[in-house]
């Protein structure tokens, strides 16, 4: 492979890692700072991708309409797509948080598995909603007229990076605010935060909604990168599990860790893809399972031997406390 090919490959690698970093940042608010277990990232991933896809594409017309059915098609710009994805994911987070956040913590975990599974089933079976299992194709790519199509990835890498950095800075700011300190207090000890007069339910809800909105943005970024989405992408393994591994590897409760974890784990994942290419032919069909097994064993090792991840949590919680 000549050098240009390698660079192009690294760029595509960085785009995907950047998108996953957005998810990891969203999860970090919920899990890292507030101690909420969201096992349904795939659901927000899915909704974010579909909502943005439908906001930015026109309603199919003519012959095309017979093959592609979708609930709506607004033909609006990419940025509106991102915001719409965040908004809808926020609403879903509220609906799932309402019955579960007052109860013990594992109920949220169970319920989020349920919502992700349910959303995937709905998108898979309801053709009128977003074309069922065939999914949506030909999603628009922002600023695509700037360069030739084969160089487009450079533009998209810039877009993903900008979104990621904006989200990163936003989280860093709010998490160092009094609001962020309440979240950490809840994670460490719910009862004593409640005794300090904090409305636990409301803070948990805000954290869940905030994190899920960011995941919606991540889903939208993914959709416009691949240009085609279908429900089979948003499985618990690919849509949820990998992101958890990224956060745990990088360091739960540390935004730098979330980003670094996303890049490191995505790199390991891709490397494992190369390695499993050398497997004998008979095993090739099962290569994805072997890759997932490697990633999971990695996770279990991290959980037992280095639960703080690569980075660990920053203990300095306020810029006033130097």
């Amino acid at each position: 492979m000549e050098i240009g090919g390698i660079i192009a490959y690294l760029v595509s690698l960085a785009i995907m890692a950047g998108i996953f970093a957005v998810f990891a940042l969203g999860l970090n608010i919920q899990c890292g700072y507030t101690g909420l277990v969201n096992f349904g990232i795939a659901g927000f991933f899915c909704v974010g991708a579909y909502v943005s896809a439908m906001i930015t594409t026109p309603m199919p017309t003519g012959l095309y309409a017979q093959y592609v059915k979708q609930l709506f098609g607004f033909n609006l710009p990419f940025v509106i797509g991102l915001l719409g994805a965040a908004l809808v994911c926020g609403i879903i987070a509220y609906l799932i948080g309402y019955p579960t956040l007052r109860l013990r913590e594992d109920y949220l975990a169970i319920a989020t598995i349920g919502i992700a599974e349910t959303l995937r089933l709905v998108f898979n079976n309801e053709h009128w909603l977003a074309n069922g299992p065939r999914g949506l194709m030909g999603l628009p790519q922002p600023l695509h007229w700037l360069v030739e199509p084969r160089h487009y990835n450079y533009i998209y890498l810039v877009i993903v990076s900008v979104v990621m950095v904006v989200i990163y800075i936003a989280i860093e700011r709010v998490i160092r605010s009094p609001w962020g300190r309440v979240l950490r207090a809840i994670r460490e000890d719910e009862y004593s935060s409640a005794m300090s007069g904090k409305d636990i339910f409301s803070f948990k809800m805000q954290s869940l909604i905030f994190g899920s909105m960011i995941m919606g943005v991540g889903g939208a970024l993914y959709a416009h990168y691949t240009k085609a989405i279908s429900p089979d992408v948003f499985t618990p393994l690919y849509g949820t599990f990998i992101i958890w591994v990224m956060l745990m590897a990088g360091g739960s409760g540390n935004n730098k860790g979330a980003v670094v974890g996303a890049f490191v784990v995505w790199f390991i994942w891709t490397l494992a893809k190369f390695l499993t290419d050398f497997l004998p032919y008979a095993l090739k069909a099962r290569a994805p399972y072997i890759r997932f097994l490697i990633i999971m064993i990695l996770l279990e090792v991290i959980l037992i031997y280095r639960p703080q991840g690569l980075m660990g949590e920053e203990k300095r919680v306020s810029k006033m406390m130097d």
């Binding site: 594992d106 393994l237 279990e300 037992i304 639960p307």
Partner: peptide, 14 residues
């Protein structure tokens, strides 16, 4: 509890 839950989900997939 977050770590425990994650460990169990990991075991499920393993």
């Amino acid at each position: 509890p977050v770590i425990m839950a994650m460990s169990a989900l990991g075991a499920a997939f393993i």
